[in-house]
């Protein structure tokens, strides 16, 4: 079947506008990247509720805290690397300790900002955001799930980080399906191995499952759209249903999906391995695919890890 591609960033901006229509308390803040994060759509629709904060991410987050503590649902958008790193302290101190309604969109995450190089490629953002108590972390796999995550974020009382990628990606989620916070989403059934993935790696996992099937291996593909609260119990239960578990993420193996799954499986006899970016920064390239190949986070890497475990 031909895949339908669309853009997570556009989905984010459009859903923000939809939310804004339903709830006058939704406001948006941006740090001069609105035309990339697509928060510019909200600006067009609701100029009075949109705050261009300039290139000042720390001020953006703290200002959002002031709006949130005053009853607003404040969506902040910028590149993931700045969202999680530059304004980490602001997110930690006032927003998360106070459990304030600030929703942070980390756009152009992982290796998706291929051209801009290491300074712009967030390969540790999930680890940073997940480490903060009171946080919720969403890692949607496609534009449909981005919309669902935006909606779920608005309904949560407290801070939420939403990880969004830059490039067009295949639509994998049925829009009529229900997004449940902290629940795994099985996209393909299988009995030999379970591949856990989030973000752009979910499509890689589905492709890997196709390849494995041709080799006689039945692979279950599970989408992890909530990295926090991580579904530890569900992942543990999965171990009883398959002979091996492999995780896949476009993030380093430290503090992301590999780490969380290993923790969930710490008392399990089921072997697990991971596909993740090594403990290293990214670099510039002509495409995400080129980088994913170099850092070992492709469908082929998943296939190899599965075959080695079984």
């Amino acid at each position: 079947m031909m895949k339908k591609y669309s853009n997570q960033r556009r989905a984010y901006g459009e859903e923000l506008v939809a939310l804004g229509r339903e709830n006058p308390n939704v406001v948006a803040l941006e740090a001069d990247l609105g035309k990339s994060t697509m928060s510019c759509l909200f600006q067009e629709a609701f100029p009075d509720r949109y705050f261009e904060m300039g290139i000042a991410e720390q001020d953006m987050l703290s200002t959002a805290a002031g709006l949130a503590v005053s009853g607003k649902i404040a969506f902040c958008s910028t590149f993931a690397v700045f969202a999680s790193g530059r304004a980490y302290d602001q997110m930690r101190q006032t927003i998360s300790i106070g459990r304030l309604n600030v929703k942070l969109c980390g756009s152009s995450s992982g290796l998706s900002d291929f051209g801009d190089g290491s300074t712009h490629q967030a390969v540790e953002d999930v680890a940073l955001m997940s480490a903060i108590p009171n946080m919720t972390v969403f890692t949607p796999c496609d534009p449909v799930e981005v919309r669902q995550a935006v909606r779920a974020a608005a309904a949560i009382q407290g801070p939420v980080y939403i990880r969004v990628v830059r490039n067009d990606v295949p639509e994998l989620i049925d829009p009529s399906s229900k997004f449940e916070v902290g629940k795994l989403r099985t996209l393909r059934e299988g009995t030999d191995v379970a591949i856990l993935a989030h973000g752009v790696m979910v499509d890689e996992a589905l492709e890997a499952a196709e390849t494995l099937q041709k080799a006689g291996i039945s692979a279950k593909v599970v989408n992890v759209a909530t990295m926090k609260p991580f579904p530890y119990d569900e992942v543990k239960a999965l171990a009883g249903q398959v002979k091996a578990i492999v995780t896949a993420e476009d993030h380093t193996f430290i503090g992301g999906l590999a780490s969380a799954a290993a923790l969930a499986l710490r008392q399990s006899a089921t072997p697990m391995d991971y596909v993740a970016i090594p403990d290293s920064f990214g670099q510039s390239a002509q495409s995400s695919e080129e980088l994913m190949k170099f850092y070992g986070v492709t469908r082929d890497d998943i296939v190899k890890k599965v075959q080695a475990l079984l």
């Binding site: 009075d48 200002t63 805290a65 002031g66 709006l67 503590v69 005053s70 404040a74 930690r92």
Partner: peptide
């Protein structure tokens, strides 16, 4: 108490957000 402060340098930004919320309201 109106907000968690203590990491210095952040209160004025938070206050701005509160003042903007008052404007919206």
């Amino acid at each position: 108490i109106e907000a968690n402060t203590g990491s210095l340098g952040q209160g004025l930004s938070i206050a701005n957000g509160m003042a903007l919320a008052m404007r919206l309201d």
